[in-house]
């Protein structure tokens, strides 16, 4: 058992970190699309659709992600839909991310003064143009920090997918520990890898914020 060097372990973890990155990317992109679509609906659709979207985000925000993963993985097969851990994790994390992003972004859109909508409307812009050309570019600036902050949470949350048998970084870490009994070293490396994935995100958001702050002050 002890013929595993630290380097071997690091290599194994690094390889499995790919799946964490990939799962995170799927959640970002999928959740971003879901969140963006629902945001547009929330800002323009009728009361019924709005209530449904609100219910959706309440449910996903008000229940543990772990339960959502269980329900996705064990629940769907009971309805006759076979799902792999991959599919279950991707779909669940996408819906989870979308449920938060739609709320975060709606808050940012609502922070833009009503007069901006009115000014855009008075120039003859359609509702979509008002949102796309005037409101969203402003909302995006204030949305950067909370969005990236949440995406960092998502990266860390992908660890939960290990429970439904998805072999990502955390799962690889525990499998390796079972094999070589060096939990401290292994989990330190796992933590370092998560940090390496999250830190660039927070760093980048800080750079963006500073740049936008300058653009406004200029």
């Amino acid at each position: 058992m002890n013929d595993f060097t630290i380097w071997d372990m690091a290599q194994g973890l690094l390889l499995s970190a790919r799946w964490t990155v990939l799962l995170s990317l799927i959640a970002f992109v999928g959740g971003g699309l879901v969140g963006g679509l629902l945001l547009v609906l929330r800002l323009s659709a009728g009361a019924k659709v709005q209530a449904m979207i609100r219910l959706y985000s309440e449910i996903f925000q008000g229940t543990p992600l772990l339960m959502q993963l269980f329900l996705g993985f064990f629940g769907l097969p009971m309805l006759g839909i076979e799902v792999s851990p991959w599919l279950a994790a991707s779909v669940t994390l996408t819906l989870y991310t979308g449920a938060y992003l739609v709320d975060i972004w709606r808050g940012c859109v609502e922070a833009i003064p009503r007069g901006q909508w009115q000014a855009a409307a008075s120039l003859g812009m359609s509702h979509g143009q008002q949102l796309r050309l005037v409101i969203w570019p402003q909302a995006m600036r204030i949305a950067t920090a909370p969005t990236v902050g949440f995406l960092v949470q998502v990266v860390k949350s992908t660890a939960l997918a290990s429970i439904i048998g998805f072999t990502e970084l955390t799962k690889a870490g525990s499998m390796l520990t079972n094999a070589v009994f060096q939990p401290f070293i292994i989990y330190s490396m796992v933590a370092a890898l998560y940090f390496a994935m999250c830190f660039p995100l927070t760093w980048y958001s800080r750079v963006l914020e500073r740049k936008q702050g300058l653009a406004l002050k200029r």
């Binding site: 003064p113 901006q116 009115q118 000014a119 855009a120 008075s122 005037v134 402003q138």
Partner: peptide, 12 residues
């Protein structure tokens, strides 16, 4: 045309 109390230029 409409002109508002608080100008409402597009800041971006």
């Amino acid at each position: 045309g409409m002109v508002f109390q608080h100008f409402e230029l597009f800041p971006h």
